[in-house]
């Protein structure tokens, strides 16, 4: 008797679990569609003619005659290669400087003792809560008086020394036991060796996370380059693409082809580093 009831209960529980799974599956499918459809639309439109882009009846994802031509034309309509080159140089240098200098400074804040440590760190923290847009104007005036207007170097100075990077790396280093450094000190390692041989190899997740953030932000930045870079040959890909949209607003296929090109590098970097990503966010105290 009671066996039967238990069995029934068990069966209904299994049914319930089954139903939950199906609902979960549907939800996931919807979310994925929401996230991915705009990108698929972009890919699809990038090989269409202007007329085909908005032909909905019936909507074809791949046109009968794909216009691969769009991907060649876009390089000649605007100096896209120059834009890509500028952006690659900028992003590469900024990311490298950011990783090096902030992990360096963070080591000191997390593991060494010195005077004025708290005041210095407070200076970093205070500016995290301050939007860059608040001081972008005096910053520009200052850079201009230093002769950095219209130079990629200005963009590098602007983005390479963020408070965010130092904060993030410091949080991560604080999670590494002090004993590790003490043991190394007793073994006669100096601080620079400890940083290079012990801390850096341990900080892969944090460094990957910081790389993703810095790379994405620098590659996609629009307002910064808009203020500083005026000459066409110095512009970044975001500015160039925006300029193209302004000039040829009805060349839908070409706009989409350019957009796809501008996305590829970021997506590649992200896919390479994403396996460390959640772990990185978790261990850098970004979760609060």
């Amino acid at each position: 008797m009671s066996d039967e009831i238990l069995q029934k209960k068990y069966r209904s529980k299994r049914k319930n679990a089954y139903a939950t799974k199906i609902i979960l599956g549907i939800v996931l499918l919807l979310i994925t569609a929401l996230m991915v459809v705009p990108f698929l639309w972009m890919l699809s439109a990038s090989i269409k003619s202007n007329r085909e882009v908005f032909m909905m009846d019936p909507f074809l994802w791949i046109p009968k005659l794909p216009k691969w031509d769009n991907y060649f034309k876009i390089w000649t309509k605007i100096p896209l290669l120059k834009f890509v080159e500028n952006t690659v140089i900028l992003t590469f240098i900024v990311t490298l400087l950011q990783l090096l200098t902030s992990s360096f400074a963070a080591y000191s804040f997390a593991k060494l003792e010195f005077r004025n440590k708290n005041i210095l760190f407070l200076a970093y923290i205070a500016t995290i809560a301050m939007p860059w847009q608040v001081y972008m104007v005096p910053q520009f005036i200052m850079m201009r008086s230093m002769g950095l207007n219209d130079k990629l170097l200005a963009m590098i100075c602007l983005q390479a020394f963020s408070a965010f990077g130092v904060f993030m790396m410091k949080q991560f280093y604080e999670g590494i036991p002090n004993d590790l450094c003490e043991a190394a000190r007793i073994d006669g390692m100096n601080e620079y060796r400890i940083y290079a041989k012990i801390m850096l190899p341990l900080s892969k997740p944090a460094l990957s996370t910081l790389t993703i953030f810095t790379f994405v932000n620098t590659w996609n930045d629009y307002l910064g380059p808009l203020i500083y870079l005026k000459t066409e040959t110095k512009k970044t890909i975001q500015l160039g693409l925006r300029m193209f949209i302004g000039q040829y607003s009805s060349e839908y296929g070409l706009i989409m082809a350019g957009s796809v090109v501008s996305l590829i590098p970021v997506i590649i970097v992200f896919l390479f580093l994403q396996k460390y990503f959640v772990e990185g966010v978790a261990s850098t105290g970004l979760k609060g």
């Binding site: 705009p38 990108f39 639309w41 972009m42 439109a45 993703i212 994405v216 590659w219 996609n220 629009y222 890909i237 975001q238 693409l241 925006r242 949209i245 706009i255 989409m256 350019g258 957009s259 796809v260 501008s262 996305l263 970021v266 997506i267 992200f270």
Partner: peptide, 10 residues
């Protein structure tokens, strides 16, 4: 991750 210029045009 996607750039604003690209994705807003979509």
């Amino acid at each position: 991750v996607a750039s604003l210029v690209a994705i807003t045009s979509v």
